[in-house]
Write a protein that binds this DNA or RNA. Structure first.
Length: 601
DNA sequence: GCCAACGTTGGC
DNA sequence: GCCAACGTTGGC
């Protein structure tokens, strides 16, 4: 790059040509000789020195106490005092550009050291001072430009050494033009709001007078200017003319009508069949109507009862993108309760997380349109482990299908390919109604979502004792990657979250009476299983639960056996189990006696 | 291709 | 002003 710059002087100025115009104009008007000297010596070829030496030249520095400035002698490494430079006359900005960071990228700023060196070669210290003066005087402007070109972060000493600030203007969407201000702590912690900033600086700075947006502290004599805040109301209103609006009676059977019957329902919702097909966008600012825009195109699908916007043709591509991940109708979309236990919930600040993932609770991801890796049943993409564990809870299934694989791990993947073949394409998720297995699975997902969604006040509060056990379990050290959740019933469920565990398909269910049972791949473990013998009939304490979980880890899931007709086939193999399959067998065993007997037939 | 990380934007 | 979370990106 630098070689190119040297060959072509026109390219020397590079992308910061505009930024430099002020400096150049001033410099030219002050001393034309400087420009000539600059052209002769290539002073502004900021990349030149770096390319030739690869090292930074010594910086000019201020010696305030001695009331002198010292400039480096080219090539000597020595400095020479510059008399007559009164430090107390220097504006604050004079000092700031001397920070090392400002000169690190020579390709974007002009190189002071070379300027000084070039001046020195001409034997004129005066040039040195003039150059220094203008460099320092205007370098703030240039530095801002430089930072914005690179990454937009600007040093912000008002918050202390090492702090940075960045203002970002929104470039699209309905809030285009609005600016957001971010700060970066010395430890590179990104701060997005005043609240976060106060947390980061807690105990070190009083932030009460800090103007977050401007980035300055407002003193008592400099009160923060009061800005009249506009009240803006945006809403969609029914057009009153479309087919849906002309229906005068509620159907009484749709979800919204049922919701309306609920006395606890805060907001009345319109019957879905009467929901306007072409609503009007109404914007009021300070009580005055500012804008009304009718959406002309129709989309017949239902949408979220309180959100007309889902129902309209979206004019803006970005908005459409945003909507397409949420159908607005499924159980997950309508759920307002975070499970508080999935990895996305744990990441949330309100659950004490660090806000890195920034995703919606897995149980609230749209069942129809969410990206696959966000769903709670994605094998290999979730801490919740097996899809089977989520999809098949409580779902009886007499036979299990497997591909012919010797590697047990691969076998499990193949199994999922058969069971969850709908998963290949999100868009086809609910469309293939002929695929019974898929629909069965989706039904189960819906059930799980439903359970989770209603596991809030109505379920959990019914049984404080069970809730207490849940809390105790969560505050205790359970066997590796076992996790407790509460679902409708209420029922306490313990899940093995590691997909590497043999117990990934096994769940422990504890009901309100602390009676329990074990499910393996959705099948309840027969009460005659020996595992039950060594444990009490009710699990009332953490210790009892832990003992059972530890015991469970001693087992494998029975692998079943291939059906006779498929045993020598190269095609996908159907594995079946005996109707009296034990499901759980001790680790050194692959099959339970009953399945083994099948294979001997 | 997957996914952690995060820039960005909508909504309250 | 702040939070929630969508969509992109870069590392692996």
């Amino acid at each position: 790059m630098n070689e190119g710059l040297l060959e072509n002087p026109a390219s020397v100025r590079g992308p910061l040509e505009e930024d430099m115009e002020v400096d150049e104009e001033v410099l030219k008007s002050t001393n034309n000789t400087l420009t000539e000297d600059e052209e002769r010596t290539g002073v502004r070829d900021s990349g030149k020195e770096k390319s030739s030496s690869g090292a930074r030249a010594p910086s000019i520095s201020l010696d305030i106490q001695k009331n002198t400035r010292s400039a480096p002698l080219a090539g000597s490494g020595q400095t020479e005092k510059v008399p007559g430079a009164a430090a107390d006359e220097a504006p604050v900005d004079w000092f700031e550009p001397l920070e090392d960071d400002d000169y690190e990228d020579d390709t974007q700023g002009w190189n002071l050291e070379e300027s000084v060196a070039g001046s020195e070669r001409s034997g004129s210290y005066f040039f040195c001072i003039i150059i220094y003066f203008f460099h320092a005087r205007f370098s703030v402007h240039r530095r801002k430009k430089k930072v914005s070109v690179e990454e937009g972060w600007e040093d912000w000493p008002a918050l202390g050494a090492g702090w940075k600030r960045k203002a970002v203007v929104r470039r699209s969407g309905s809030s285009v033009g609005q600016s957001d201000v971010y700060y970066m702590s010395p430890s590179n912690e990104r701060v997005r709001s005043r609240v976060e900033l106060s947390k980061v600086l807690a105990g070190t700075l009083d932030m009460t007078m800090f103007d977050y947006k401007a980035g300055v502290f407002r003193g008592a004599g400099q009160p923060k200017p009061l800005r009249g805040r506009r009240k803006v109301i945006k809403k969609w209103i029914p057009c009153g003319n479309c087919r849906a609006c002309l229906i005068t009676e509620d159907c009484g059977s749709c979800a919204n009508c049922k919701k309306a019957l609920n006395p606890d329902s805060r907001n009345p919702v319109r019957c879905r069949k009467r929901k306007c097909l072409c609503p009007i966008r109404k914007v009021q600012i300070d009580g005055r109507k500012k804008e009304m825009k009718k959406i002309s195109s129709l989309t017949p699908q239902y949408s979220d009862p309180e959100d007309f916007s889902v129902n309209v043709d979206i004019e803006d591509d970005d908005e459409e993108k945003r909507k397409r991940r949420s159908c607005g109708n499924c159980e997950a979309c309508n759920s307002r309760t975070d499970c508080g236990t999935c990895d996305f919930c744990i990441d949330k600040p309100k659950f004490g997380g660090s806000n890195k993932k920034r995703q919606k609770c897995r149980l609230r991801q749209c069942q129809r349109q969410a990206m696959r890796h966000l769903l709670p049943f994605q094998l290999g993409q979730t801490d919740f482990g097996s899809q089977e564990g989520w999809v098949q809870l409580g779902r009886p299934r007499p036979h299990f299908t497997y591909s012919r694989k010797t590697n047990p791990k691969k076998s499990k993947t193949q199994q999922l390919e058969v069971d969850l073949d709908f998963d290949d394409d999100d868009d086809d998720l609910l469309q293939d109604e002929e695929d019974d297995r898929s629909m069965d699975t989706v039904s189960s997902i819906t059930q799980i979502f439903s359970l989770a969604a209603s596991a809030g006040p109505s379920g959990i509060e019914q049984d404080h004792e069970l809730l207490k056990l849940l809390e105790s379990l969560r505050s205790s050290a359970l066997p590796t990657l076992w996790f407790a959740i509460m679902v409708e019933g209420p029922v306490l469920q313990l899940l093995q979250c590691s997909k590497l565990s043999h117990m990934v398909d096994t769940t422990l269910h504890i009901d309100q009476g602390f009676c329990y049972y074990i499910c393996v791949q959705g099948q309840p473990l027969l009460l005659t299983h020996s595992l039950y013998e060594s444990h009490p009939s009710r699990l009332t304490s953490v210790a009892e639960v832990v003992a059972l979980l530890l015991d469970l880890e001693k087992y494998n899931v029975c692998q079943g056996v291939p059906t006779v007709e498929q045993r020598f086939s190269q095609a996908a193999v159907i594995i079946e189990r005996a109707s009296t399959c034990d499901f759980l067998v001790l680790k050194e065993t692959e099959h339970c006696p009953n399945c083994k007997a099948l294979s001997c037939d």
